[in-house]
Design a protein around this nucleic acid. Structure first.
Lengths: 199, 199
DNA sequence: ATTTTTTTATACCGATCGGTATACAATTCG
DNA sequence: CGAATTGTATACCGATCGGTATAAAAAAAT
């Protein structure tokens, strides 16, 4: 009952996500948002609460639609394939032509005013959670004898995440996908490829 | 002649640099700056022009005082030592206890509003300049047979810069120096160490 | 048709943004 | 001692910030 909403919530959230992704949390004004989403401020506040709530919902959508490769990658049977899928997955997302360059989880609020401290903290925890999940996956790999010798699982996880965060900056600076792929090839060089069993 | 200035320009610039480093260009307000520097707005504008001019002078100071290791590293005779000095130099700067975490060249304006587009562009060019300088050094190394086989000089340069940009994010997220050093150790693993000639 | 509920449009809120005009204080020069 | 010059303090500028009060518009329920 009541007056029906005149906009699609999902479309609006997609637009908000892209704006935050490109301009960061503080760099995106409510005017940017309402003009981009094609709605008025009361509508925005009615559905999303406030700017912070909108950002968190946009981040949630980002994780669900753009970072889904990550948890898929963790399911790979060999640790090296986990690492490679994650690295290429990030590079793909960071250089997709349909969206902004780089990574919302970094662009969102890397350095900011006190007003955005909560968002900043949230994004840091977000990154650390991914690293921890990957570390746990590599712990399993270690117990399976599936890690290159002489490496701690959580160090390997930090290494992979550091490369991906580096490519996020590279992408935000204009690097294209093939350039990032060459970086990834180098980053994986020390990690022996799985030998495929012959017929 | 005239009334003497009551503050030290260099001290004030140092403070501005640290503020921009920690909070970014747009995240640092003129109130943050004047309170931190201990001067009034007319004094700030009198000496530094405007906020943008102040940031550029702070960036200049940053390059001169915090990034001096970079061009020193380029003088190392062996390419691997160049790479390692750069990686550790960045990690040291990004985790120094006396200053903010991370890197001004990235924290300054990674994602921002249109108002900061010029600063953002300036920082991108800054990063690309460093990568180009390193690429040129590696070109020389290639001509000297001083690069690991199968790698292009400019790909290697991008690789090194990607790691350093990754550690900048890690540092901004709370990683300590030893953690970054372990990442660097892994990143350099594919690169054979110079064998020191025995006496 | 009227009431009720929800959304939308407009106009507005105080606070803060970067930046400056004006007046005054402190120094050197003649 | 003035006069000239330069820096500082205060108060202010229009614009924009995130957020909201108010009322009209559009649907469902009675």
């Amino acid at each position: 009952m009541g007056r029906p909403r005149e906009f699609d919530v999902d479309d609006a959230l997609e637009t908000a996500m892209e704006l935050f992704w490109r301009k960061g949390y503080e760099g995106t004004s409510l005017t940017d948002l309402t003009e981009g989403m094609g709605i008025t401020k009361p509508s925005l506040y009615g559905v999303f609460g406030n700017k912070e709530g909108l950002f968190l919902k946009a981040l949630e959508r980002y994780e669900r639609t753009k970072m889904n490769f990550f948890h898929e990658a963790l399911k790979e049977p060999k640790a090296r394939d986990v690492a490679e899928k994650i690295l290429r997955g990030f590079a793909d997302s960071q250089t997709a032509e349909t969206g902004p360059s780089g990574c919302l989880g970094i662009n969102g609020a890397l350095a900011c005013s006190e007003a955005a401290a909560e968002i900043q903290k949230c994004l840091i925890e977000n990154r650390q959670r991914g690293e921890r999940d990957l570390g746990r996956r590599f712990e399993r790999a270690a117990s399976e004898g599936d890690l290159p010798a002489g490496h701690e699982p959580y160090d390997l996880a930090r290494y992979i995440m550091t490369i991906s965060q580096g490519t996020a900056i590279q992408a935000a600076s204009g690097a294209d996908r093939s350039a990032l792929y060459r970086v990834i090839d180098m980053a994986l060089q020390f990690w022996p490829e799985t030998v495929v069993a012959q017929g």
